[in-house]
């Protein structure tokens, strides 16, 4: 998956919602949604998905989630 497909080269504030939507779709396509969610919830030590997505900085880890998907697809 190219960075552009995730909107990772766009201005950070303007593209946050779009990035997340595209990433969620990509994760669901791969059947990996709960792994990615579990990874992020563990990383941020939060108890709910809602709490996860209002956290600042969650978007910094989109690259890492991409890597996880990449590893699974090899």
């Amino acid at each position: 998956m190219k960075r552009e497909e995730l909107g990772l080269n766009e201005a950070p504030l303007a593209s946050r919602v779009r990035k997340l939507t595209v990433l969620e779709e990509k994760i669901k396509e791969n059947g990996l949604e709960w792994i990615a969610v579990a990874w992020l919830m563990d990383h941020y030590n939060v108890a709910s998905i809602d709490e996860l997505f209002i956290r600042e900085g969650v978007y910094d880890y989109l690259d890492h989630m991409e890597n996880i998907i990449g590893q699974m697809e090899k």
Binding site: W34, I35, V37, A38, W39, M41, D42, Q71, M72, K74
Partner: peptide
């Protein structure tokens, strides 16, 4: 099968392909 409760166990796991 992994479901929405998987996060409760993930912290103690090492996942392998």
């Amino acid at each position: 099968e992994i479901d929405e409760y998987f996060h409760q166990y993930y912290g103690n796991l090492t996942l392998c392909a």
